[in-house]
């Protein structure tokens, strides 16, 4: 196998590539958000409506994604599932961000013993692989959407706190912060008005990738039966479909496609945002995989 370094100019410039990623990911994300928002108008029927006479009907005209074992319309469940995924994603990212900002900001700004304690707590959370802690929490709290959000938020805040702490540590030494201190501006005001805005770029990147991670984690937990049993989430529908793969593969295929498309589009969006904001480094790799949650 021989490798030749090409002397040709890159066929696609980096900036243009990132912009394309941003547009492509952003468009799909926008569609997903619209579907979630207008689910009651877009869904052809009630996702929970049982029609035993049309049990396991394959996809066809009038029922494009087919029906499940209880005759419920899969398309309607997938549309309402978008609502669950987006809602869980936004709420978990929001809680994680606020918690991360408070803990990471305080650790990075005050440093010392507070920072030491913070780092040890983070070590403990990072000692749990992937969504194991969320699985454990959701299992002991019981299956419900609220508990699922709590479990995922408990996992998600660590990433934001680490990023914000790191940014605080680096920005607090910069000249303009020193100037603000010299002007007698209070510590809280310096933290909120002068340092925090500098944390927004990496946090935005983390949030874009994090949405994909949360959607995947929420679907995983719902697949395992740790989400709400009465909510049409993609993971729960897929879980039912996986058992009927031999006779009715359509039940698993469509919610799985929905999960993949939404996670992929948030990851592409994250890549685009990262490329345009950072233009160097590969935070994707430092951050690890979107599979690990928020």
């Amino acid at each position: 196998m021989a490798f030749q370094l090409t002397n040709e100019k890159p066929k696609i410039s980096r900036g243009a590539g990132y912009r394309r990623l941003l547009i492509a990911g952003g468009m799909v994300v926008a569609v997903l958000l619209l579907v979630a928002l207008f689910a009651p108008w877009l869904a052809p029927s009630d996702p929970g409506a049982i029609h035993l006479e049309s049990s396991l009907v394959a996809p066809g005209p009038g029922h494009w994604f087919g029906h499940d074992r209880l005759g419920r319309d899969i398309l309607s469940q997938v549309i309402y599932g978008a609502r669950v995924s987006m809602m869980v994603g936004i709420v978990v990212i929001g809680i994680s961000f606020v918690l991360g900002m408070i803990v990471g900001g305080a650790a990075g700004f005050f440093g010392g013993i507070l920072d030491e304690i913070f780092m040890r707590v983070v070590d403990v959370f990072l000692a749990f692989p992937g969504i194991l802690l969320a699985i454990a929490l959701a299992a002991v709290l019981g299956p419900s959407l609220k508990n699922l959000v709590i479990a995922l938020s408990c996992l998600g805040w660590v990433g934001y706190a680490r990023i914000i702490r790191g940014q605080f540590l680096s920005v607090r030494e910069r000249g303009f912060v020193e100037a603000a201190r010299a002007l007698g501006i209070g510590r809280l005001r310096i933290g909120l008005r002068h340092i925090l805005p500098h944390c927004l770029a990496p946090v935005l990147i983390q949030a874009s990738f994090g949405m994909g991670g949360v959607i995947l984690a929420e679907s995983s937990l719902s697949f395992l039966g740790l989400g709400s049993p009465n909510t049409p989430s993609w993971g729960r529908v897929l879980s039912e479909g996986a058992e009927l793969m031999r006779v009715a593969p359509h039940i698993a295929i469509f919610p799985g496609l929905a999960i993949m498309i939404s996670v992929l589009s948030f990851n592409i969006l994250g890549d685009g945002v990262q490329g345009l904001l950072m233009k160097k480094g590969d935070l994707f790799l430092q951050r690890g995989s979107g599979r690990n949650g928020a």
Partner: peptide, 13 residues
């Protein structure tokens, strides 16, 4: 990107 976006509980079935 596709690799990290594919849910293993979908790929498996």
């Amino acid at each position: 990107l596709l690799g990290v976006s594919l849910p293993n509980f979908w790929l498996g079935p």
